[in-house]
Amino acid sequence: MTRKNSTFYFAERPQGLIVPGKTFKLVESDAPTADDLEDGQVLVEVIYLSVDPGMRSVLYDSRSYVPALALGEKMKGNGIARVLASKSAKAKEGDLVTALTGWTEVAIVGENELQVINLPEGANVTDALGAAGNTGITAYIGLKHIGQPKAGETVVVSGAAGATGIIVGQIAKIHGCRVVGIAGSDDKCRLLVDELGFDVALNYKSPAFREELAKATPKYIDVYWDNVGGEILDECLARAAVHSRFVICGSISIYNSLGAAENKGIRNLIQVLMQRIRMEGFIVFDYRDDYPEARQALGKWLVEGKIKRKETIVKGGIGVVDSTFNDLFAGKNVGKLMVEVKPLQEAH
Rank of each mutant, 00 (worst) to 15 (best):
I167E: 01
P149E: 13
Q148R: 14
A128P: 03
N118M: 07
T126K: 05
S158F: 06
S158D: 08
V157E: 04
G142W: 07
I137A: 01
N124M: 10
C177P: 03
A132M: 06
G142L: 06
G181I: 12
N118R: 13
E153V: 15
N118T: 13
T126W: 11
Q148F: 15
H145P: 15
G169Y: 08
G152S: 13
K150H: 06
V168I: 11
Y140M: 10
V168T: 09
I167L: 08
G133H: 01
R178Q: 14
G147H: 13
C177E: 02
T135K: 08
G130F: 08
A128Y: 01
G122C: 10
V180E: 03
V116S: 07
I182L: 03
I167W: 03
N124F: 07
T126M: 15
Q170D: 14
G181N: 08
I146K: 14
P149D: 09
I141Q: 01
L129E: 04
L129H: 05
L119K: 01
I146G: 15
G147S: 11
G162L: 15
I137C: 07
H145Y: 15
G122M: 15
G176I: 05
N124K: 09
H175S: 12
G130E: 03
V116C: 11
G122K: 14
N124P: 10
G133F: 00
K144W: 15
A128C: 11
N118F: 05
I146T: 12
T135F: 10
I146E: 12
V125E: 11
I167D: 01
A172G: 15
N124Q: 09
P149L: 12
T135G: 07
I137F: 02
A183M: 05
Q170R: 06
I137R: 00
P120S: 02
T126R: 04
A183S: 04
G184T: 05
Q170P: 12
D127L: 08
I117N: 01
G147C: 13
Q115H: 07
I137V: 04
T138G: 04
V180R: 02
G147W: 00
G165R: 00
G169R: 02
V157K: 01
A163D: 07
V180F: 11
K144M: 13
G142C: 07
G147Y: 05
V180D: 02
Q148L: 09
Q115C: 10
I174W: 03
T164H: 06
Q170I: 08
G133Q: 00
G165S: 10
A131L: 10
S158T: 08
G181T: 06
